[in-house]
Computed example of a mutant assay.
Amino acid sequence: MSTLAFQPLFAFFGLGTQEIMLLLVLGVLLFGRNLPSLGRSLGKTVTEFKKGVKGLEDDMEPTTSRTIEPEPVRPPQRVTSTAPKFEDSPPPKV
């Protein structure tokens, strides 16, 4: 691999190819037998983190299926009052 392949990835830390190789060798020496389990737990951690971030993004973005559309505005309608018609009735007998 060339130096350019590592350069953009680790430019933030200022690490070169030799420093990365040294860290890999130290990692193998220190965690030799535990590397598979460390890799598994790191993979699970990253997966759970991505799921959590995805869940937050889904909660933040409005979706069209969940939006409630308001009823269209209708112009005011004329109220026709139909007043009750009173017929002349004879006065009550007392």
Rank of each mutant, 00 (worst) to 15 (best):
T3G: 03
F6T: 10
P8I: 06
P8A: 06
L9V: 15
L9I: 15
A11T: 07
F12N: 11
F12V: 08
F13N: 08
F13Q: 12
F13H: 06
L15C: 02
L15F: 13
E19V: 00
I20E: 00
M21N: 03
L22F: 04
L22S: 05
L23E: 01
L23V: 05
L24C: 02
L29A: 02
L29K: 14
F31M: 03
F31D: 05
R33I: 01
N34F: 07
N34M: 09
L35H: 03
P36K: 05
S37H: 06
R40H: 08
S41W: 07
T45N: 09
V46I: 15
T47P: 00
E48V: 13
F49Q: 13
K51W: 04
K51L: 13
K51A: 03
K51M: 08
G52W: 05
V53S: 06
K54N: 10
K54H: 12
G55A: 14
L56G: 15
L56H: 11
E57N: 11
D58E: 14
D59C: 13
D59G: 08
D59S: 12
M60W: 11
E61V: 14
P62M: 02
T64R: 14
S65G: 04
S65V: 14
E71P: 04
R74T: 14
Q77F: 09
R78W: 03
V79D: 01
T80G: 01
T82E: 11
A83T: 07
P84V: 08
K85N: 05
D88I: 11
S89M: 09
P91I: 07
P91Q: 05
P92N: 03
K93D: 07
K93A: 05
